[in-house]
Each structure stands twice: as structure tokens, then as C-alpha cells.
Measured scan of single mutants.
Amino acid sequence: TRVETATETAWISLVTALHLVLGLSAVLGLL
């Protein structure tokens, strides 16, 4: 259904953003 697709997209966006933040923090930590 469309609701499931929207929820899945939201989760993917959330996980991606989380990985970006963690990756950025790791890079800044190494610097």
C-alpha cells in the first residue's frame, strides 16, 4: 500500500541521515 511505501521511504531517509551524521562525526573525530 502507499502508506507502507511512505513509511519505508521515511525509514530509509532516517537511516541514511543517521549514517551520514555518524560518518561525519567519525571523520571530524579523526581530524
Rank of each mutant, 00 (worst) to 15 (best):
T1N: 12
T1R: 09
R2W: 14
R2Y: 04
V3Y: 00
V3Q: 11
V3C: 09
E4S: 04
E4P: 11
E4L: 07
T5S: 10
T5H: 04
T5R: 13
A6C: 14
A6H: 05
T7K: 02
T7F: 04
T7I: 01
T7R: 13
E8V: 01
E8W: 11
E8K: 07
T9A: 13
T9R: 12
T9L: 11
T9S: 06
A10V: 09
A10S: 05
A10I: 05
A10R: 08
W11V: 12
W11F: 09
W11I: 08
I12A: 12
I12Y: 11
S13F: 15
S13L: 15
S13W: 00
S13P: 12
S13D: 00
S13K: 01
S13E: 05
L14F: 10
L14S: 08
L14Q: 12
L14V: 03
V15N: 01
V15K: 11
V15C: 04
V15E: 06
T16E: 09
T16N: 10
A17V: 08
A17E: 12
A17D: 07
A17F: 06
A17H: 06
A17T: 15
L18I: 07
L18G: 08
L18H: 09
L18E: 12
L18Y: 03
H19N: 07
H19V: 11
H19M: 00
H19F: 00
H19K: 00
L20A: 14
L20Y: 10
L20M: 03
L20D: 05
L20Q: 07
V21E: 06
V21G: 12
V21L: 14
V21D: 04
L22S: 15
L22E: 04
G23Q: 00
G23F: 04
G23E: 04
G23Y: 14
G23C: 15
G23P: 02
G23M: 11
L24C: 10
L24P: 06
L24H: 10
L24R: 08
L24T: 10
S25H: 15
S25A: 01
S25Y: 11
S25R: 05
S25I: 08
A26D: 01
A26Q: 00
A26V: 06
A26T: 08
V27L: 13
V27E: 03
V27S: 12
L28E: 01
L28H: 06
G29K: 05
G29P: 09
G29T: 07
G29R: 10
L30R: 09
L30S: 05
L30K: 01
L30P: 14
L30V: 10
L30M: 15
L31G: 07
L31M: 12
L31A: 11
